[in-house]
Amino acid sequence: MAAKARKWALDFGDTGPSSSRSAPEPLGYNRQHAIEPAEDSSAVGKKDKNAPDMFKLTKAWEVAGSPLKQIGMMAFMMWMSGSTVQIFSIMMTFTGIWQPMQAIRGSAQIFLPFKDARTDVLLPRLAFCGLQLLGMGIALWKLNSLGLLPTSASDWTSSLAVPPNAEFSGGGFPLS
């Protein structure tokens, strides 16, 4: 390490014509690196600017696919929790509905890091939402199979009033 270390020195008195300005360049500043790209490479640079960042896109697609694992997990849990109405199965099912809704609402946030002027994340985001909806669908199906969704006629007609009688009748054994 010590051998590689170089000694350095700065002469504050050097105000020679080599520097274009009167003030010295800041420490560690290399004018060469700060040079703007050459005119000839500008065409390539423009093309790069509009092309999506492949790396970001790949990452975005990865995120879009992530609910698949969740869905698998949830389906398994739901299968495990059984078909009887109890606190566990209800909790499972409601989280199954609630989570996708949250995820869809926050999907803009999730895909924000991958989004820039060049990278369009709409497609992965749609895919993500679609998968979440699929998960929600499974949860709803579960809810229905638990009998908690008012989908049949009997759910709507249970409180139908009893029809009155057109005639009135009484009587019985005569009083003695």
């Binding site: 009998g147 006629a153 009997s154 409180s159 139908l160 009893v162 009688n165 009748s169 009484g170 019985g172």
Partner: peptide
């Protein structure tokens, strides 16, 4: 010989089955 109590209140005219079908009760008071 006996009939229904006139003051009895009935909530629903339907009887729900396990398969979400319904049966109509015959609730004629007479």
């Amino acid at each position: 010989v006996f009939g229904r109590r006139p003051e009895e209140s009935v909530h629903s005219q339907l009887r729900m089955l396990g398969n979400h079908q319904v049966l109509h009760k015959y609730l004629n008071r007479n």
